[in-house]
Design a protein around this nucleic acid. Sequence first.
RNA 1: GUGGUUGUAGCUCAGUUGGUUAGAGCGCCUGGUUGUGGCCCAGGAGGUCGCCGGUUCGAGUCCGGUCUCCCACCCCA
Length: 420
Amino acid sequence: MAKSAPLPGTADIFPAEARAWRFLEETGRKVFERYGFGELRTPVFEATEVFQRGLGDETEVVQKEMYTFEDRGGRSVTLRPEGTAGVMRALLNTDVLNGVEQRVYYTGPMFRGERPAAGRRRQFHQIGAENVGRVAPELDAECIAMLLDFLGELGLSDAVLKLNTRGVATDRPAAAAALKDYFSRHLDVLCDDCKKRLEGNVWRILDCKQPACREVIAGVPDYAGMFSAESRAYFEEVCRRLDWLGIRYEIDPFLVRGLDYYVHTVFEITHAGLGAQNAVAGGGRYELLLPGESKPVVGVGFAAGMERLLMARESLGLTAAAPELSMVFVAALGDRAEEFKVKFAQRLRHDGVAVMTEPAGKSLKAQMRAANRVNARIAVIAGDEELARGVAVLRDLGSAEQREVGLAELAQAVRDALGC
RNA sequence: GUGGUUGUAGCUCAGUUGGUUAGAGCGCCUGGUUGUGGCCCAGGAGGUCGCCGGUUCGAGUCCGGUCUCCCACCCCA
């Protein structure tokens, strides 16, 4: 049991693991910038209304998962439960409402007050991208293509893409009425949650996992077929463009995302080996109405769960490349040598070399053990005796070969030995 | 939020039907080499047995509570 554990659903990420995280972030940056996206960093907390209005009061996230509190000025603020709303708030300061496109990506912690489980934390991390300001099927397709490129570079090309359309606001009343009518006729079989959803949000019944509900859901009417011709054409065009790119997808009429802001295209990427939470990424096209605005911000984007991406990579045995080993260890014996150790180590570091030493007073054996522990490639051993003769020992810890080098050439000799 | 499960050294774990000073492996420290790492050998440091309470002559072992881990539901990334 950890002496000093972080709060439930949060985690400390130590250096070895942080390397894997950095790999994810760097891969994301590389891929997203190829599509013309730039990083946008927004605050981790926002005025509560940003999420309430942005995500919709109906959503589960807003209703019971937000970390909301009053700050010292009595304002209600909320730790961001997702990235899109804050990004949209920030982009209101650009011309997006006039149709000028903004392409941004973000990464960082998100907060949701849920019970932790496999692939689910209270502080979790997402990396996501948003193409904001314009509406076009090709932007949706490009967004999906970019996400798949990212996953591919992570070694996750076996992920599965599911796709669906939610139509637009004016398409929904008729479709929702049809669904409601259908489900009311099977009310007796539906689970309690679904009975509530029938009144609150019929769409959510579509992704219920209860076996009894699933049977009813399987016979659901073709609601997408009731959408307007424009909406259907939009979705067909997205699919056509994915076909052009050879992207494989599965149209899943039961895919509804939990956030209310989605319109038209919605998608989800799942990966095997993750437990019950098998979605590594999700997204779609959206319209967000933010506080103080009469017009919604439009865009298409996705968010990927970094913990889940890492889990997926782990399930495949993929690990981030270990850093190149180029550590130099400086060992000293004697008072004069101690001063040399400190100065020489500093000099090498200023030359861009990674250097470690042990505190004074350790035996040479202990210093060499430390050199081995930190995986040093070469050791510089300086004793008063050598220094008096104007030399120091340069030892290759791989081959165990060593030689004396004049102090004037020592720094260069170390760099040569490292090949830099 | 509801359920199930777990909790002994820095890490991974043993610990017999409750019985004296709680163990192993790895890691760490020291020594075996007046000044040379990895391997080996010897020694050492390190634990209020998650926490609180109860039963008992006696609790790491039993009981209750609580917290936590992990997992499922739920929700979603």
